[in-house]
Design a protein around this nucleic acid. Sequence first.
DNA 1: GAGTACATGTAAATTGTTACATGATTTA
DNA 2: TAAATCATGTAACAATTTACATGTACTC
Lengths: 173, 173
Amino acid sequence: MSLRHAVLATLLPGPQSGYDLAKKFDDVMRTVWYARRNQMYGELAKLTEAGFAEEVAEGPRGRRLYVVTPAGRAELRRWLVDVEPDRTVRDETMLRALLVSTLDSADALKVLEREENALAPELRDLRAFLDQQAGAEKPTDPLMMGLDLRARMVEAMLGWIHEARRRILAQRR
Amino acid sequence: MSLRHAVLATLLPGPQSGYDLAKKFDDVMRTVWYARRNQMYGELAKLTEAGFAEEVAEGPRGRRLYVVTPAGRAELRRWLVDVEPDRTVRDETMLRALLVSTLDSADALKVLEREENALAPELRDLRAFLDQQAGAEKPTDPLMMGLDLRARMVEAMLGWIHEARRRILAQRR
DNA sequence: GAGTACATGTAAATTGTTACATGATTTA
DNA sequence: TAAATCATGTAACAATTTACATGTACTC
C-alpha cells in the first residue's frame, strides 16, 4: 500500500487538488509509482478520514484543496524510517527483457531495438534537464534526485540491451 | 496482465507443476515479476482453459504436471513482439529513494544506509555467480540474461545511493 | 459560442494479498 | 513416528483498471 505514502509526499509542498496530484503522478511519479487520475480522489478521501490530510479550501469548478496534517508528516516519516521496505518487484520492461531470450534471434533483435528506441530519447531528455539544472541551489530536491535515479536506471537498461544484442549476434555464427 | 506470460515462459522448459513454478518465481522471477504461490494454481487453470497450457500427467501427492501448447508458444511470441509494452512502473524501492529527500538529513542517511545494506550483498552474490558462469555454453540463457540485468539495476541503485549521500553531507555544512 | 482544459467522482471487473484448509510423501 | 517438505486449493479482502457520468471556467 505505497500509494498512500506516494500521495502524501506529493501533497507535501502545499495545498493541492486531486487534479494537481494526478498531473504530478503523470509527470514525475510515472517512472516510480504510477497511479491513475481517479485513484487520487479515493486516496485523498481515505487520507482525510485517517487524519493524515485535510481539505482547506474550495476553488473554482469545485476544486478541492488539501494539505498534509502534522499526523500525516509523522506517518510519512514513520513509513520511510520504521517500516521494512517491500522489495518485491513487478516490472513489465524487465520481464520482457528476460523473456526475449525465448524468441528466435530475428524476433529478439527486433524487440530489443524497440526497447532501445523507447529508452534512448528518454535518457537524452533526462540528461539534458539534469545538466541544465547542475549547480542549482537545491541538489537534494526530490525531483532532481528522482530524475537522477531514473536516468541511472535507464542507462543500466540500455547497457544491458547492448550486451544482449552482442550475445545474440555472437551466437548466430 | 503480465502474470499470464511470465507463467507461460517459466513453464516453457518442460512439464512442471504449480508448485515447481512457484519455486521458480521465488528464486528467479522474484526480482522481475513477483507472484505468490497460490496465484500459480489460478493462472494454470486459466491458461489451460484458454488452450495455452495443458495437463499432461499426475504425480505423487496430487502433483499435476503441465506443458505449454503450440498455441501457448504462439501467444507468448505475439505478446513479446506485437503487443506494445506497458512501461508504467510501480517500484517501492524507487519510491522510497525518491521520498528520502523529504526527511531530515539524519533520517535520510539512516534510510540510505539500510538500502545499501540490503543491496550490496545482493550485487556481490550476483557478480560472483555471473563471473563463475562466464564463458558458459549458453550466454543467451534467460536466467543469465535476467541476472545480468538485475545486477546492472542494483549497481545503478547503489551508485545513486552514494551520490545521494554525498549531496546530503555536502548540504549539511 | 465552441473548443479545450479543468475538475471530481462512481460502478463493475480484474488482479493481487492474506489467511485459512487439507492432505500426502519423504527423511531423520 | 514426528517433523519437514511437498502439493493444491478456497474465501474474503484490498488494490488497480476500465469505462462511464457530469459539470465548470477559460481562451480563441
